[in-house]
Amino acid sequence: MAERRLRVLMAKIGLDGHDRGVKVVARALRDAGFEVIYTGLHRTSEEVAEAAVQEDVELIGVSILSGAHMALIPPLLEHLRAHQADDIRVLVGGVIPEKDRPKLVDLGVAAVFDQDSTIAEIVGWIGREFGLPASASPSTAG
């Protein structure tokens, strides 16, 4: 009777006020059968790390369109380590220049998706990463 559902926290960190993309992804993850905690706009990395701990998520999806990812992601990873929660994987999405992707991965980000990524790619990656059955596929195409 046990029922495990992947818990994912979706967050916007920093000053950018565009939340359409993150909402579309949140909705798609819901349709893929995940439990998605949405924390809204203008969060700090400390807030996100703390919410992730309280919500016991396995994955944090951060959307950054402002170009400030190299300034905002390291503190998030740092706060997760401070909470002894660096086993929580971090996925970054948004406008991320090619040259920054390996840097983010080196810092400890699990995956980077850009504005050209499809919902199916994101859900597919999550499914593989967390060993979920293939049936957990989105009902909406990206």
Binding site: R27, L29, R30, D31, A32, F34, E35, Y38, S139
Partner: peptide
Amino acid sequence: FSGGAILG
């Protein structure tokens, strides 16, 4: 339908 949820 999916069993998923958005918790806001």
